[in-house]
């Protein structure tokens, strides 16, 4: 474990040096993400021109939900996103060979090579919106609530990771897999909506099997509502994230057996 941490520290340092040497690009990525995020807030603004609640969520609770979603997805994207979206390319070109030869777990190597510094800033924007919403709601969460919130957010990021990792792993079967990366955004799309709007089989599947609905909803609920019992929600999140992580790992192992390298 210590060895992995040491390796990660070096990777992290390299990434930061690289990011800082392309400052213009770094700033542009920040602007890009900011625009996408502000668009979401604008959307909420438009929706609430016509209603004062969705499910039992008020406007600022929904903004808090979107801010939470932003934090979760940016934490995942900072650590892994770029690397996973490169995986199909590694498989196609056969450069995965190198990763497999390293004296480390291959899943670790393909997931953590580059760290996205701009995503940290964007997660900060999410935090700012969450704080602002709390102010608007007049809610001061207890230290306990904040603690559970942080745990729930990290569990949520794990779910993001598992989904994207499983999708990227499909590239062992399909040569051109950009469509799969697009799939991550499609699946995760619904996690910005209050879970009350969903129902039926859809809600079941996307709560338990591909748990995108609960990912941001549970932490937001824990933070915004003191009356909510956090333990049940945390337990549920822990179960679904452990499950999806395990499944994606099994899937990856299976895919690796199929790998036959390319060129050379």
């Amino acid at each position: 474990m210590k060895r992995y941490w040491d390796v990660y520290k070096i990777l992290l340092r390299n990434s930061i040096i690289r990011e800082m040497s392309f400052k213009g690009n770094f700033l542009l990525w920040m602007v890009t993400e900011l625009l996408w995020f502000l668009g979401q807030v604008l959307f909420v603004d438009v929706l609430f021109l016509y209603t004062d609640h969705i499910g039992n969520w008020t406007k600022w609770e929904v903004v808090l939900l979107i801010g939470t979603h932003q934090i979760i997805s940016q934490i995942f994207q900072a650590v892994c996103y770029m690397n996973l979206s490169n995986l199909p390319e590694l498989v196609r070109t056969g450069r995965l060979d190198l990763m497999l030869l390293l004296p480390m777990d291959a899943q670790f190597s393909v997931s953590t090579r580059q760290f996205g510094l701009d995503n940290v800033v964007n997660a900060g924007i999410g935090v700012a919106f969450v704080l602002f919403s709390l102010g608007k709601l007049g809610v001061v969460p207890s230290p306990g609530q904040v603690g559970w919130y942080v745990i729930a957010v990290l569990l949520g990021s794990t779910v993001h990771y598992s989904i994207m990792f499983a999708l990227a792993t499909f590239s062992f079967w399909i040569v051109r897999a950009q469509g799969l990366i697009y799939g991550y955004y499609s699946l995760i799309n619904v996690s910005r909506y209050p879970s009350e709007v969903f129902g039926g089989l859809f809600k079941f599947v996307f709560t338990w099997l591909i748990p995108v609905i609960v990912v941001a909803n549970s932490p937001a609920r824990i933070l915004a509502r003191a009356s909510v019992q956090p333990l049940g929600l945390i337990l549920q999140l822990a179960v679904v994230s452990a499950l999806s992580l395990t499944l994606s790992r099994l899937f990856w192992r299976r895919a690796l057996r199929r790998y036959s390298s390319a060129s050379s």
Partner: peptide, 20 residues
Amino acid sequence: WNFLLRSLFDVMPLVGTVYL
């Protein structure tokens, strides 16, 4: 495969939108 998947993934946001 690439674009079949893309079309398939289009359904998800649509269903989410309908629910919302």
